[in-house]
């Protein structure tokens, strides 16, 4: 009976969480559609959440592209298909690795920052202060972060794609002596531009997930400093899990069997 109780409570909590996060997203969309946007705060957040994530996103993407190329290039040359390495690196980067890796890195850095900041504001009564001034925390705090990530994560992903492919190209050239021209020709022949756009669409969805989950966890913070820590961890874990789940669903819908 106790196990059933736990399962029942857990299921209820999952649905309550999903409902709460969906409601926060719907509220945010309402403000955005009504153009009730704080532009200065949004640009500040774009800098804090996006520009300041640039170095970490570029570094992880560079090394991922390099290691992918390292693992595949020598083997490919041995089997006489070295001319396909550029395509393989570009294909996997633009469709999967670029959007996913950027999102996971940004979720770790930015999702945690959003949850911690809003959580601290809850425990120091700043959220209640906003409400008591007749201001909506969703409009004042969530919408700027949501818009910032919707814009900045795809931009970060474009840069991550480029750096990852360049890193892969360099390693393929050094270790497997695959020429730059062969690498680029292969990449261009395998990767249609629409796939790059679809990868960027994924980034938009991941940006929404990171902003909403971070904000929701932050706003749900209870119980002082320990609560802030819990909210921060919860935001990162939940956002990363959702990124993986949505990545599969989006790949299925956008790319199907192709």
């Amino acid at each position: 009976m106790r196990v059933l109780d736990e399962v029942g409570r857990g299921t209820t909590n999952v649905f309550a969480y999903a409902g709460g996060a969906a409601e926060l997203l719907a509220d945010s969309v309402r403000f955005i559609v009504g153009l009730r946007i704080r532009f200065r705060e949004t640009s500040d957040q774009a800098y804090l959440l996006g520009v300041q994530s640039l170095s970490i996103v570029l570094l992880t993407s560079l090394f991922t592209g390099m290691v992918f190329s390292l693992e595949s290039a020598v083997q490919a040359v041995e089997y006489g298909v070295g001319n396909l390495v550029g395509g393989a690196v570009a294909f996997s980067t633009a469709r999967e690795l670029g959007p996913m890796l950027s999102a996971v890195v940004v979720a770790g850095r930015t999702g945690a920052a959003i949850a911690a900041e809003l959580g601290s504001m809850v425990v120091t009564e700043q959220i209640e202060a906003l409400q008591s001034l007749g201001l909506s925390p969703t409009r004042m705090l969530v919408v700027p972060r949501l818009l910032a990530l919707i814009v900045m994560l795809p931009l970060l992903t474009i840069l991550a794609d480029i750096v990852s492919i360049l890193g892969g190209m360099w390693v393929a050239n050094i270790y497997a002596h695959i020429s730059t021209e062969s690498f680029v020709t292969s990449a261009r022949s395998v990767l249609p531009f629409t796939d790059v756009l679809k990868g960027l669409f994924k980034s938009v969805v991941f940006g929404i997930i990171i902003a909403i989950i971070g904000s929701y966890q932050g706003l749900q913070t209870r119980g002082g400093a320990a609560g802030v820590g819990k909210a921060t961890t919860g935001a990162v874990v939940t956002a990363i899990i959702l990124i993986f789940v949505f990545n599969f669903a989006l790949s299925y819908v956008l790319f199907g069997g192709s």
């Binding site: 504001m121 120091t124 009564e125 700043q126 209640e128 202060a129 008591s132 001034l133």
Partner: peptide, 9 residues
């Protein structure tokens, strides 16, 4: 509303 710990931003 003046909060106990002021709740200034």
């Amino acid at each position: 509303f003046a909060f106990q710990f002021s709740a200034l931003f």
